[in-house]
Nucleic acid binder design. Structure first.
Lengths: 258, 258
DNA sequence: CGCATACTTGAAATAGTTCAAAAGACGTGG
DNA sequence: CCACGTCTTTTGAACTATTTCAAGTATGCG
């Protein structure tokens, strides 16, 4: 396991995985039946990835994109000098590095914050689909644009909001995204990440984040446990973080997943 | 001029504009001769835009993308409550809102920080090109990905660097980008932006930015004037900002424009 | 049971903000 | 061409959010 992979191939479940991804695409794009079945026929190789392990590294050439099937994955931007920071978090259904299909060079790392499952989809298969179906090309391109939109929102948070608002915004965003894939839990969301990693993503020290979390706990707004965030006052959280879901650009809404 | 436009059509120069854009695309993508001439045949409507005026507004439906021909344009992310901040700066040759070709909703505003010239290219023409030429679809998609890469880098700057490093990084980035379009001046770069707007983009108060600029002036690193930045010590600036051009993802380099 | 990692808390230091105000640039109309 | 108002830049001083340093308490794993 020198790459941190356990590249067990499980072809019988790949339909399910791709259905997950298809559902994700259809959150934002309209596809015809031919295009749908083309997506569902993509080849996929399932891997388990270790926690705290970069399964995509800077500089390393890649010939596949990673669909998150289960778990939580952090995307790190990294400078040549090694300095790095989390710039995005990916949940099941996200194709974490769709960018790599068209990017010359991988300029980020992917890292599981909890033991996770990913599906590796060959770039060439994705490219072939975009050549055959312009609608799929648009859907991929659009998903990259939404990813950029999330990033822009995040830059806005970092530059203008204080610590509490940033935490509140991120919790609200994750809540919205988990809701979109039908994974809201009774009173909260899965969020298996350490305070250290969370602080990194938020541009805070873990010490300061800890104090903010303490405040949220004391004021019964939200409680972070190792694996999840229990949200007791979602409206308050959204207000604190000045959260507005427009930037996630979902389609009018095909009814909330029951 | 109720829209702040002066929609003078100058068809005779549109070849030049599109050549500018083609050159930009070819910085990162390889195109065949058929594709090249398709780009050069795009329809374009030239407009002058007033300084300090949003020529693309949130919510406003758009049916065209804006190619910056001359000047400097800021992209603002904006919340529904009106709070906004600069998340990107665009120089000539940039298609500032290529995203809008595939985005359902425009979630940012474009605003000229100096009197500028833009060319409006109809979405439908751009879409038609991507349907006909997969290579062009890849090139557009790739440019959006690079835009996201710049944004990720910027998020990293905001979350981990102090004021001086952020200023130094932005100056270094702009220098690199102006160099790529062959617009480096003798001892500096064009940068027609007020300290207030620059501070906004950097996530600083204009007061603090002013003190950083003073320091750079005193230490003979760089001097900001209303219209430009004179750079006296580019290596120092790059080191201070820990600038590493990899994220701009240009191709191996077709020789620096003389 | 012991070691490593994650979390929590306190106190001191500081980068950056806020408030306040003056001095310089620039265009407009008298 | 000068006076005026507006906008930008510059500077000072007080304040505060966040970091840094330091230490202690849980928690989980071999």
């Amino acid at each position: 396991m020198k790459h941190g992979f356990d590249p067990t191939i499980m072809p019988d479940t790949s339909q399910d995985l791709l259905a997950l991804y298809l559902k994700r695409l259809e959150l934002r794009s309209t596809l015809g039946s031919e295009e749908r079945s083309a997506i569902l026929s993509l080849p996929a190789e399932i891997c388990r990835v270790d926690v705290a392990h970069d399964f995509v590294r800077i500089g390393q050439p890649v010939d596949h994109a990673c669909l998150i099937v289960e778990g939580l994955v952090a995307r790190f931007a990294q400078l040549r000098n090694g300095q790095r920071g989390i710039v995005a978090l990916h949940i099941p259904g996200d194709m974490a590095d769709l960018h790599s299909v068209v990017a010359k060079e991988v300029s980020w790392a992917l890292h599981a914050t909890t033991p996770s499952t990913i599906a590796r989809i060959p770039h060439e298969a994705l490219r072939e689909l975009t050549r055959q179906y312009p609608a799929i090309a648009f859907a991929f391109w659009r998903d990259c644009v939404v990813d950029a939109s999330v990033l822009a929102q995040w830059a806005l948070n970092l530059s203008r909001k204080d610590a509490a608002a940033r935490v509140a915004h991120l919790f609200s965003e994750m809540r919205h995204r988990y809701a979109a894939i039908g994974a809201l839990e009774a009173n909260g969301i899965p969020f298996p990440i350490t305070q250290t990693n969370l602080a990194d993503a938020l541009g805070l020290t873990s010490i300061h984040l800890n104090r903010v979390l303490k405040r949220f706990r004391e004021e019964a707004i939200a409680v972070k446990t190792p694996d999840k965030v229990e949200i007791y006052n979602a409206p308050r959280l959204a207000a604190l973080g000045e959260f507005d879901d427009a930037y996630l650009q979902c389609l009018p809404d095909p009814q909330p997943a029951s």
